[in-house]
Amino acid sequence: MKKTLAIFFLFIATTVSAQTDCRDVTHLMQRLWKHETGSAAWKKVSDSVLSICPNAARLWGDRGQAYMFRGEFVEGMRSLSQAAKLDPYYFLGSRAWSRMHYLHDYKGAISDLDTLENNVGGSYYYVTSMHMYILKGLSYEQLGNYQKALELYTIAIDQQVKEKGENWVGSYDYLHRGILRYKMEDYDGAIEDLTRQVTEYETLADTYYYRGLAYAAVGRKEEAKVDLLHSKELILGTGQRRWEGVFVIPNEVYLSNVENALLKIY
């Protein structure tokens, strides 16, 4: 009897402790962040905190990202889906983002974003730090539906300007639309958007590369040369180019792209 009571009290104590811990998921996340994501030590903590709080979406989201980083896509997507089930407002967007970047599953990403938009009841919603229509537009662009992508980029930019002002337009929104307009052979439109992007972010090599291509396409060779050379300088020097360790981003610009463009034009 004593033994039974002891087990009972232990069970109650564990349950109460688990519930207390689950109210502070940030604390559990901090335990995870002490270790390299995906490492054996991280995995041990991840297993442990998920056994304490199996309904904490953030813990599943963190686990999903770790598996996606390392190409373990089945477990990665299973965890991200669990996170999206528990917290569809945040993690449907996160799953869309992962589908797009890790798997190039653009149709799946669009489907997740459509569901998210229905849940939210509107389109003015951010996924990571990006307006959801920018992410959806990138997916349509990758599928080759440029017209739909243009429509979405424009709505996203206009909504942000209208709701909060020009300063609230996303860091790369004009870049995305400028690149798309270049692909659609609307070179003047591309130059206009990319010039706005230069104002937004002066040391980004990508913008000068695409604007250089657009200038070249309309015969403004000298301006094209200046931009392409500047893009090269930024990549080789202290400027920035958009890149990620864990995946290749859409429309990524490499030094060899810039050098080839210079060779082609001159």
Binding site: G38, F69, R70, I235, L236, Q240, R241, W243, G245, V246, V248, E252, Y254, L255, S256
Partner: peptide, 15 residues
């Protein structure tokens, strides 16, 4: 290591 920990700004391996 993991490959993504070792990439650099000028890495052109994906191309």
């Amino acid at each position: 290591w993991q490959g993504y920990q070792l990439k650099s700004k000028q890495d052109e391996t994906p191309i």
